[in-house]
């Protein structure tokens, strides 16, 4: 008996015959996934093909057919000529504004939140946890209850309608989630390291800059991804705290596409929509796993 099995093991693989990969369960599994994928990919596909067609082709054809004649004219027009109100210089202005809002907002919000998180994780003082709790609870308060007080604050410090005002607003509303993110990350760095540095005479800032910062590059990348997509995609704050000359890209896009005047140019609209979505999409496809980590971090409870 023992002999038999051992000799058989030499002959070849043991165990049950592997399932065929085309079993009914697998066909169902992959079939469902592929059908669902089509639903998810459809809007992107439709946007791309529409933006490459001419208007006559759009009026006569169907939205799913690939373009017979590829034209990049809609993209050029969306970028440089599309009109919002009286301005006809295209989305390029909104893009410029969004970049001017994005860079200082990301830098400022991450700088403040990381130092806050560090203080909360390693340098607690009386009441620090109370402020942090208020901050986290504040993340659930509907923005609408804080919109007008912020208008007053911005007006008082002279930043209302200014890009700087919007930067401040993004820094404020990005603070709860980023502070939580950094606090949890810094708390996971072994405390012995912190203690050793203190024994060697390092203080608050030198530990932050010389020990914590170099060790926490991944979490900074996660925070940057989170903030870049979040701020780029913002519409509410952009529409309230800026004026037409400083509208970010999303607001300008909505004004271009949903304007009631003139003939609707669907190809230009779709090119403009894609242009606006391009920045977060590139970040998403390039960052891959880190993006997922960022939203998972955003999902953890305080």
């Amino acid at each position: 008996m023992v002999d038999l099995t051992s000799s058989r093991s030499l002959d070849g693989p043991r165990g049950p015959k592997p399932k065929r990969s085309f079993s009914r369960a697998n066909i169902f599994l992959y079939g469902t996934l592929i059908v669902v994928s089509v639903y998810y990919l459809l809007p992107l596909y439709v946007m791309v093909v529409t933006s490459l067609k001419g208007m006559p082709e759009i009026r006569t054809g169907n939205i799913f057919s690939p373009p017979l004649e590829i034209t990049f004219q809609p993209w050029v027009k969306a970028w440089a000529q599309a009109c919002t109100g009286i301005n006809c210089d295209g989305l390029s202005r909104g893009f410029g504004n969004s970049v001017k809002i994005l860079i200082p907002s990301v830098v400022l919000s991450i700088a403040i939140a990381s130092i806050n998180g560090y203080a909360l994780a390693r340098w607690r003082f009386k009441g620090s946890e109370v402020f942090f709790s208020i901050l986290i609870v504040g993340a659930f308060i509907p923005y609408q209850t804080m919109l007008y007080p912020l208008v007053i604050i911005l007006r008082e410090i002279g930043l209302m309608g200014d890009l700087g005002g919007l930067v401040l607003v993004h820094t404020i509303f990005g603070m709860p989630i980023l502070t939580l993110l950094f606090r949890n990350y810094f708390a996971s760095i072994p405390e012995d390291l912190h203690k050793a540095a203190r024994v060697d005479g390092a203080g608050f800032w030198s530990i932050y800059f010389r020990i914590m910062l170099p060790m926490s590059l991944p979490i900074f990348v996660v925070a940057i991804i989170l903030q870049v997509t979040g701020i780029w995609n913002d519409f509410l704050f952009g529409v309230i705290y800026t004026k037409p000359e400083t509208y970010p890209m999303t607001v300008q896009l909505n004004n271009i596409v949903n304007s009631v005047q003139g003939v609707k140019e669907y190809n230009v609209n779709m090119a403009a929509t894609l242009l606006t979505g391009l920045v977060p999409l590139i970040i998403y496809f390039v960052s891959g796993k880190l993006f997922v980590r960022g939203i998972a971090a955003g999902a953890v409870k305080g």
Binding site: L44, N233, T276, G277, P280, L281
Partner: peptide, 11 residues
């Protein structure tokens, strides 16, 4: 399945 989440509600 996740890429739409990167896009704004406006888009």
């Amino acid at each position: 399945f996740l890429y739409p989440f990167a896009l704004s509600f406006i888009v």
